[in-house]
Simulated assay, not measured.
Amino acid sequence: MNDLILLLASHPVLETDRLLLRPIRLSDAPDMFEFASDIETTKFVFKAYKSLAETQSIIASQFLAHPIGKYGIELKENHKMIGMISYNRINEATRTAEVGYTLNKNYRGRGIMPEALNQLVETGFELFKFNSLLAVYDELNSASSKVIEKCGFKYLYTDPYSRFDFYDEDRLVTDVFYRLTKEDYTTK
C-alpha cells in the first residue's frame, strides 16, 4: 500500500522561521478574499473571486473538502493568511506532484514565497519522499520564474498555446515547465 496520502494527511502543518503553512479554514475567507479578489495578484493563477460569499464557497469545496497537500500561508507575526501553496496533481504511484502558489501582492519582495516553496520542497523530498516536483507558470509571469529558479527547479520545456488566459479569452498562454528531482535536490 502506498502511504503518500496518509503521510501528507499526517502532516497538515509545516513551519518556517516566519511562516506557518497550515490548512485553510473558513475563517480565512476575509484574508483570502483580500488577495484572491485582486486581478494583479491572481491574473496568472486563477480568475479573481467576486465576493466574500464566493470565497467561502471555494474554501469549502476546494480546501475543506479536499485538504491534502494544500496550505494557507500565515505570517506568524500577525497570524494573517497572506497566500496559498500546494502540492497539486499528486501521483502516489510515481511519487510526483506539481507545486502551485499565490501571494498577496502587499507581501511580495520580502522573500516569503521562496521561503514557503523551499519548505514545501524540503518536506516533499525529506518527509514525503517525492521523486520529483513540477512547477508550471505563464511565460509572462517573470516573478514566478524567479521564485522557481531560486528554489532550485530546472527548466524542462516551453509549451506554446497550452491554454486560454483567465482574463483575455483571445490570448493563448505559453506555459513554462520546470522540474526538481530528488537527485537535483540532494546535490543542491
Results as ranks from 00 to 15, higher is better:
23 P>D: 07
25 R>G: 00
35 F>A: 01
57 S>D: 15
12 P>G: 12
69 G>P: 08
44 F>V: 00
76 K>V: 08
113 M>W: 08
35 F>C: 08
72 G>S: 10
64 L>A: 08
41 T>P: 00
12 P>D: 09
157 Y>T: 10
92 E>G: 07
148 I>K: 02
179 R>I: 11
40 E>H: 12
122 E>L: 12
27 S>M: 01
32 M>K: 09
94 T>N: 15
15 E>T: 15
111 G>P: 02
117 L>M: 06
61 S>Q: 12
26 L>D: 13
1 M>I: 10
41 T>E: 02
12 P>I: 13
178 Y>Q: 10
144 S>P: 04
57 S>A: 14
28 D>N: 06
94 T>R: 14
110 R>N: 13
91 N>R: 09
144 S>F: 03
73 I>E: 06
66 H>T: 13
27 S>K: 10
20 L>E: 12
57 S>C: 04
12 P>H: 11
88 N>G: 02
16 T>Q: 02
73 I>V: 14
178 Y>V: 02
28 D>S: 06
64 L>F: 04
88 N>I: 03
82 I>N: 04
123 T>A: 14
10 S>I: 03
160 P>K: 14
109 G>Q: 02
167 Y>K: 00
65 A>P: 01
175 D>N: 15
157 Y>K: 15
66 H>C: 03
155 Y>Q: 06
154 K>L: 12
23 P>G: 05
55 T>R: 06
56 Q>K: 15
181 T>K: 05
25 R>A: 12
49 Y>N: 07
80 K>C: 09
184 D>C: 01
155 Y>M: 01
184 D>Y: 05
65 A>Y: 09
110 R>H: 15
165 D>C: 00
153 F>P: 07
163 R>H: 02
148 I>Q: 03
40 E>R: 11
119 Q>T: 14
184 D>F: 01
153 F>N: 01
91 N>W: 07
102 T>A: 03
156 L>K: 15
83 G>H: 08
131 N>S: 11
160 P>G: 02
82 I>P: 09
30 P>K: 10
46 F>V: 00
84 M>I: 15
120 L>W: 09
128 F>P: 03
117 L>T: 07
91 N>A: 03
16 T>S: 10
144 S>M: 04
104 N>G: 05
63 F>V: 04
179 R>M: 13
77 E>C: 04
166 F>V: 00
147 V>K: 03
124 G>N: 12
158 T>C: 05
108 R>A: 02
186 T>K: 11
130 F>Q: 04
75 L>E: 14
